[in-house]
Amino acid sequence: MYRLLGFMSVGVTVILIVSVAIGCGSNRKNIEELAGEGNELRVYEVFGMDCPGCHGGVEKLVNRLNGVIASKANWEKQQLTVVILRTAEITDQMIFDAIKQANFTPGKRLR
């Protein structure tokens, strides 16, 4: 019984890994394209990201804000690009709070 459970957990693990790995990175929206559709594009400094794995954490929290269409982080440039619906009322402080929740520190708004 336990052996079966062990093998099953390994099997499920492999399936999960393969399926998510295939999906990883393939659903990235073209952020510039989205901004070009009449939406607002903002760029913020973000400190504390140290590898691509950090992107998802901050993007997920920023994307939860009502009115955010998409966001894209870049650990190397220490930047977060956010596309916001033109009619949405999203302040910089709301973005800063989301960045902090992701364990990073917001810097200046660059654009």
């Binding site: 990883c24 794995g53 992107h55």
Partner: peptide
């Protein structure tokens, strides 16, 4: 060791 990160996958 070596680590490869692609998006949220390592």
């Amino acid at each position: 060791g070596l680590k490869l990160t692609r998006g949220s996958f390592i």
